[in-house]
C-alpha cells in the first residue's frame, strides 16, 4: 500500500490533494486476448460501468496482447482479462471478466468497501 497508516492526517491530505490534481479523471487499460467470450464480456462490462459512473471523466484503452505481446511485460500482466486502473492512484489490477460489478466498483473506488 502506498499510504502511510502511521500518520492519518497526512494520508488524508495526500488523498485530497490527489483528487484535486486529478480532477477525478480515470485512466483505465483493459488487457485481453482477441475476441474470446471472456474478453467480450469484460469489454461490455467496463463500457457500461464507465458510461454509468465515469461519464466524461475516463480514458479507457483496450489492449489486445495478441497484437502487442511486448506490452504484457511492461504492464506486468499474467492473468487475462486484466483491467488496470492507472489513475487515480493507487493503481489497481482487476483480474477477471468484470462480471462482479460490486467488486469492480469497490476496486475502482466508486463504491465504499463493505464493512
Amino acid at each position: 500500500m502506498r499510504t502511510d497508516p502511521g500518520n492519518k492526517s497526512t494520508t488524508a491530505e495526500f488523498e485530497k490533494a490527489l483528487n484535486r490534481t486529478g480532477d477525478g479523471q480515470y485512466v483505465l487499460r483493459l488487457y485481453l486476448t482477441g475476441s474470446t467470450i471472456r474478453s467480450n464480456r469484460a469489454v461490455t462490462a467496463i463500457k457500461i460501468l464507465c458510461e454509468r459512473y465515469l461519464k466524461g471523466r475516463y480514458d479507457l484503452e483496450i489492449v489486445d496482447l495478441r497484437q502487442h505481446p511486448d506490452r504484457a511485460d511492461a504492464a506486468q500482466i499474467f492473468a487475462l482479462p486484466t483491467l488496470v486502473k492507472v489513475l487515480p492512484l493507487p493503481s489497481r489490477r482487476l483480474v477477471g471478466d468484470l462480471t462482479d460489478p460490486d467488486r469492480v466498483l469497490i476496486a475502482l473506488d466508486l463504491k465504499p468497501a463493505k464493512k
Binding site: 488487457y31 486476448t33 471472456r38 464480456r41 469484460a42 496482447l65 495478441r66 505481446p69 504484457a72 511485460d73 500482466i77 499474467f78 492473468a79 487475462l80 482479462p81 486484466t82 483491467l83 489497481r92 489490477r93 482487476l94 483480474v95 477477471g96 471478466d97 468484470l98 462480471t99 462482479d100 467488486r103 469492480v104 469497490i106 476496486a107
Partner: peptide
C-alpha cells in the same frame, strides 16, 4: 489485485 470474475493465465502464456 482484485478478482472480478473468470480469468485465465493467457497473459503469462503470451509473455
Amino acid at each position: 489485485i482484485e478478482e472480478t470474475g473468470e480469468y485465465d493465465l493467457e497473459g503469462l502464456f503470451i509473455r
